[in-house]
């Protein structure tokens, strides 16, 4: 069905077929992602996380231990805590489902073949699909952060400033900066998940396989990270950096954990994107 055979695909592709402007292709993909009801439902449900935490804190009042207890009377902590909660499973789920739909979903419904014969280069195709995944990741994090700030201010209340875990008080501007930092960091971690999910997505035509692999992988990583005798594995596990988001609540801000976990996420991104390019350059439909 394709114009190239297996051997010529390895040597090079016909350049005259890559004429569609990248912006238009990416825009079309993002519109397509955002018009899908499942994307909107997932984003809406994610927005409920900070609201649920805020109501729980407002009803239960102070007391209890753990990070959630820090939200009481300290509303600006809510977006940080909500992002931390969602990062363990729900945000990766949202990103993985977007990545699963991006390639495996299209393959499953038979539309991938049409895309691959369209005048869009394979590299552009990957960029376009990655843009859809990035959009979902950014929107999901932004919604939790913004709803978290609003719910934290309205429901929990607070002094208009952020009380850090170190007992210092940050002003409004610096608190906003910390929330923006944790949001950007969370997006970085999600991009690692999304890149790996996209890579898996190119090997299958069943979106469920992608979801199962990503969530199963996260759970396995979590289990491996909890075994003391395997602590030499920690630097390799993406999940072992997931707790570093809490560091934005410390003062002075320790950057080691955020930097090393972002670096680790970057390596996963490179791996995932590399495998995705490699696979899509050879895929026939």
């Amino acid at each position: 069905m394709t114009a190239t055979t297996g051997t010529s695909a390895a040597t090079g592709r016909a350049p005259e077929r890559t004429h569609a402007p990248l912006g238009r292709v990416v825009g079309a993909e993002i519109r397509w992602v955002l018009r899908r009801p499942r994307t909107l439902v997932v984003l809406g449900l994610l927005a409920l996380i900070p609201v649920a935490v805020a109501i729980g804190i407002a009803v239960a009042g102070r007391g209890g231990r753990g990070l959630i207890a820090q939200v009481a009377g300290n509303g600006f902590v809510l977006p940080v805590v909500a992002l931390g909660l969602a990062l363990t499973l729900l945000l990766p789920l949202a990103v993985a489902s977007a990545a699963a739909d991006a390639v495996a979903g299209e393959a499953g419904s038979g539309t991938l073949r049409g895309l691959l014969v369209a005048p869009v280069g394979r590299a552009r195709f990957v960029v376009m699909k990655a843009a859809g995944v990035i959009t979902v990741a950014v929107l999901a994090v932004a919604i939790i952060a913004v709803v978290g700030m609003i719910a934290g201010t309205l429901v929990v209340g607070g002094p208009g400033s952020l009380i850090t875990l170190s007992g210092t008080t940050l002003g409004f501007g610096e608190a906003l900066g910390r929330i923006a930092l944790v949001a950007v960091w969370t997006i970085g971690q999600l991009l690692a998940v999304g890149a790996v999910a996209l890579a898996i997505s190119t090997f299958t035509e069943h979106p469920l396989v992608v979801l199962a692999c990503v969530l199963g992988g996260l759970i396995v990583f979590g289990v491996l990270g909890a075994i003391p005798s395997l602590d030499w594995l920690q630097p390799l596990l993406l999940t072992s950096g997931f707790t570093a988001g809490t560091d934005v609540l410390r003062d002075p801000l320790p950057l080691d954990g955020l930097a090393s976990s972002s670096l680790r996420a970057l390596v996963y991104v490179v791996l995932g994107v590399g495998v995705t390019f490699w696979r899509m350059a050879r895929r026939d439909g």
Binding site: R65, G66, L67, Q70, L165, S166, G167, T243, T246, D247, R250, P254
Partner: peptide
């Protein structure tokens, strides 16, 4: 620092 808090 600890996972869910800090002593200062």
């Amino acid at each position: 620092p600890s996972g869910d808090g800090e002593k200062t």
